[in-house]
């Protein structure tokens, strides 16, 4: 249905709105008494009893026994962050541009960079203060290299929240990368890892 008829909030022939049929409230004692008698013998109480009994007999249980069973979560679910590696070379994707640090609205990303011996910018420290992060996803959205993404890890039981978001914990381990376990964040410009992803030759 188009939304235009719904925009007219006046009840009329054309509009889809209508008044709910509410019986007038009884005023005299006799009317009240009649209402009570009607409700008493209408059997509504038994309808309620029947409904719950039917559900019990059908035994259509909807419980998810959580630690044993888990519900699937959406691919764009925003859980604890991950830092990804390049498929072709295994280098860290983060180029230390600092955009994520800048955009973070709760100001919770801290990073330290230096120029390494090959004159490349190297990220030495990268941490997210999970006590302040609101999981807005801006950092993942702004990152030009698809380096910081949100992972799917929502079970954050630990002695310290910090354990999840220092660089070593967020970064994909190298053996995971070689075994193809690094999940790609399906955002704009995401790569599909296959044979076509090859290492760019440095020597021209």
């Amino acid at each position: 249905m188009h939304s235009e008829p719904l925009n007219d909030r006046n009840v009329s022939e054309q509009s889809p709105y209508f008044y709910v049929d509410i019986e007038t409230y009884p005023t005299t004692s006799w009317d009240k008494f009649k209402q009570v008698v009607k409700r008493t013998f209408k059997g509504e109480l038994f309808v309620g009893l029947w409904v719950v009994m039917r559900e019990m007999i059908k035994f259509d249980i909807h419980t998810v026994q959580y630690p044993k069973e888990k519900l699937p979560i959406g691919p764009r679910y925003r859980a604890v962050h991950k830092l990804l590696r390049l498929w072709e070379s295994g280098y860290e994707r983060c180029i230390g541009c600092g955009l994520c640090e800048k955009i973070c609205i709760s100001d919770c990303i801290r990073m330290d960079t230096k120029i390494d011996e090959n004159s490349r910018k190297e990220v030495t420290e990268y941490s997210i203060n999970l006590g302040r992060c609101i999981f807005c996803g801006y950092c993942a959205e702004v990152c030009p290299e698809l380096a910081i993404v949100h992972g799917q890890r929502y079970e954050n039981g630990s002695e310290q929240r910090a354990h999840f978001v220092i660089k070593d914990d967020m970064l994909t381990p190298l053996d995971w990368l070689t075994s193809g376990q690094q999940a790609e964040f399906p955002g704009f410009g995401a790569i599909t890892p296959n044979e076509s992803v090859t290492k760019t030759p440095l020597a021209y």
């Binding site: 719950v52 009994m53 559900e55 019990m56 035994f59 259509d60 249980i61 909807h62 419980t63 026994q65």
Partner: peptide
């Protein structure tokens, strides 16, 4: 248990 079954839950497990 009975309340759970009637509400489509499992109750203590």
């Amino acid at each position: 248990k009975v309340l759970a079954f009637m509400q489509r839950r499992l109750g203590p497990m």
